[in-house]
């Protein structure tokens, strides 16, 4: 039924948007794609799962736990895999792409060793609670996911546009060298960005667990690839592009599954990538053409 699918699509899309924001923030500032982001939010999902399903703590605590762990991972990632490359002259942005791929391999397989393969149920106490809204039944979980995502996006938008830290970050994103000359501590800004992006990944991980009721060590990859598709679609480094792109992908996947074939659901993202890159390489909200420069 259309309305239900619409709600499902928006829920899924808002999670995608949060995932994509993690990529786009880092790209906006550093011009690199953090291929380890997927694995970082996968860890966030596992931390959330352990806290909620095993330790039985309330959901907000699980979010905080996931944020703490993924934020710390972001910090380590920046120190171990990104900063050493920045200080080296002539390191291309392919080098950091590859080093973050290295981190992603490491984390994915570390998760495999720690948590094992296979699905882990992600049980929330209110998984079955739903209530009628007009003609459709809405799950409480869906409402929560939507609310949290919206809060997070609004918070991020406010932070970027209103606060000093946010403005410094935007200046850094605009032009790393100039921001440095203007007295912005760019190394610190970069660390802050990666940590914030990773912490958002922690939230995304828990949301994914809530939405699908299970997690495994492959969600970093499968959801991460979608996040990449979204930022290419929305325009690399564009915050609003990530939000819009996430919603569009969530909706199109939901409707393709509902009215078409479920098998190709995961391919939609990549058809989008290839299509966008051919037709409008700068993405929906992007400005510079990617083929030139850098």
């Amino acid at each position: 039924m259309f309305l239900e699918q619409l709600i499902n699509g928006v829920t899924l899309g808002s999670i995608y948007a949060i995932v994509a924001l993690g990529y786009t923030l880092v790209f906006g500032v550093l011009d690199i794609i953090n291929m380890a982001h997927g694995e970082i939010f996968m860890f966030g999902a596992f931390v959330g799962m352990l806290l909620v399903s095993k330790a039985g703590v309330p959901l907000p605590v699980a979010f905080l736990g996931a944020i703490a762990v993924t934020g710390a991972m972001g910090f380590l990632l920046e120190r171990a895999a990104l900063r050493p490359l920045r200080s080296r002259p002539g390191a291309s942005n392919l080098a950091s792409l590859i080093s973050t791929i290295g981190v992603s391999i490491l984390l994915e397989n570390a998760a495999h060793r720690i948590f094992g393969a296979g699905n882990h149920p992600f049980e929330t106490p209110f998984a079955e609670i739903r209530f009628p809204v007009g003609p459709v039944n809405v799950y409480l979980v869906q409402v929560l996911i939507l609310l949290i995502s919206l809060l997070l996006m609004a918070g991020l938008a406010l932070w970027l546009s209103r606060t000093r830290g946010g403005k410094a970050l935007r200046a850094t994103a605009e032009d790393l060298t100039t921001a440095g000359l203007l007295g912005v501590d760019t190394d610190r800004m970069i660390t802050v960005t990666v940590v914030i992006a990773s912490a958002m990944g922690g939230v995304a991980g828990v949301l994914i667990g809530m939405a699908f009721n299970y997690i495994n060590n492959q969600i970093g990859l499968s959801m991460g690839l979608k996040g990449l598709a979204i930022i290419i679609f929305g325009g690399m480094g564009s915050v609003y592009g990530a939000m819009a792109g996430g919603l569009i992908l969530g909706l199109s996947e939901t409707f393709v599954v509902a009215y078409g074939s479920s098998g190709y659901r995961d391919a939609i993202a990549f058809v989008i990538i290839i299509g966008v890159l051919l037709v409008r390489p700068q993405g929906l909200f992007g400005q510079a053409a990617p083929g030139t420069g850098h």
Binding site: I32, I33, S92, N93, L94, L97, I232, M236, L277, P281, A289, P290, G291, T292, H294
Partner: peptide, 8 residues
């Protein structure tokens, strides 16, 4: 028309 990370 693509280069670097976009091509990847």
């Amino acid at each position: 028309r693509l280069s670097g990370v976009y091509l990847a």
